[in-house]
């Protein structure tokens, strides 16, 4: 019994340390590799709808991983790819490949705040945010979508170059997953990302539906994850610029 009490006290202490909450989120979400096909739907303020499909592959540990995102549809963008090399200590490196031009281009660090090809995401949002690059504050607890969540504030450390001065994170207390993330520049809300339809895939709770609201453009981007797989064997050489240039 005393062991149980000691465990509960330790859990409470752990739960109330914001950094440890985020680290726990990352730990629980850890996989050596991931693949899915996403359907991306962008609805503009004027209700104009565009849709794209991509395949996403990731290898390596969280915060130090490499990922390739290849567009599959529509035909005009088929083969366009984005290569992301995440780093624990600094911002990621990102390159884009356009097969029609047979050219790759580096996405400059200064350009990470720009929109990711007309979607509600910015290039920065595609990075994995290692807990070490932020300072966290626990703001309290809130119920969101019927679930009890911790509300945290994340502020980028000096070494981290970010468009957001701070972000609010809502973490589900039962699953240690994000329910919502809001990115702010000073007092202005830039972007809100909501995570829904959590499903346990090979022991990892994964949101199958994401919704991004771009407050500046009043546009809504949704992403549906399909064919989600974890732990597939992937080779490092498939996550290089040379590999990016290979035809789909």
């Amino acid at each position: 019994m005393s062991k149980w009490i000691a465990f509960l006290l330790a859990s409470c202490a752990l739960a109330q340390d914001p950094r440890q909450i985020v680290e726990e989120v990352q730990r629980r979400n850890r996989s050596q590799s991931q693949r899915y096909e996403g359907t991306l739907t962008v609805t503009s303020a004027k209700s104009r709808v565009t849709q794209k499909r991509w395949r996403y592959e990731r290898t390596g540990s969280f915060g130090d991983s490499k990922a390739v995102l290849r567009f599959l549809e529509p035909p005009e963008v088929k083969g366009v790819a984005l290569l992301v090399h995440n780093h624990k200590e600094r911002a990621s490196d990102q390159w884009m490949w356009t097969p029609e031009l047979q050219r790759d281009r580096r996405i400059a660090l200064q350009d990470r705040s720009t929109r990711f090809f007309g979607t509600g995401f910015s290039f920065e949002d595609l990075e994995e945010r290692d807990a070490g690059q932020f300072d966290y504050t626990l703001l309290g607890q809130e119920k969101l979508d019927g679930q009890m969540c911790w509300k945290l504030e994340a502020r980028p450390r000096q070494t981290k170059r970010s468009q957001y001065t701070h972000s609010y994170l809502w973490v589900r207390q039962d699953l240690y997953v994000y329910v919502m993330v809001e990115g702010y520049k000073n007092q202005e809300l830039l972007r809100r990302i909501a995570y829904r339809d959590y499903e346990n895939v090979k022991g990892l709770w994964t949101a199958r539906f994401l919704e991004v609201f771009d407050t500046k453009r009043q546009s809504r981007t949704t992403m549906k994850l399909e064919k989600l797989e974890y732990g597939l064997p992937m080779k490092d050489e498939d996550f290089t610029l040379q590999a990016l240039r290979r035809p789909l």
């Binding site: 503009s44 303020a45 996405i107």
Partner: peptide, 30 residues
């Protein structure tokens, strides 16, 4: 166009970037 809008205002018809039929197609097609 991935980073240029931070320096130049592309004031597009229709009130937003969305009126480029699709920014990704814009970049993908020469």
């Amino acid at each position: 166009m991935t980073g240029d809008s931070s320096l130049r205002e592309y004031d597009l018809e229709g009130g937003g970037e969305d009126v480029i039929d699709d920014p990704l197609i814009f970049l993908a097609q020469p």
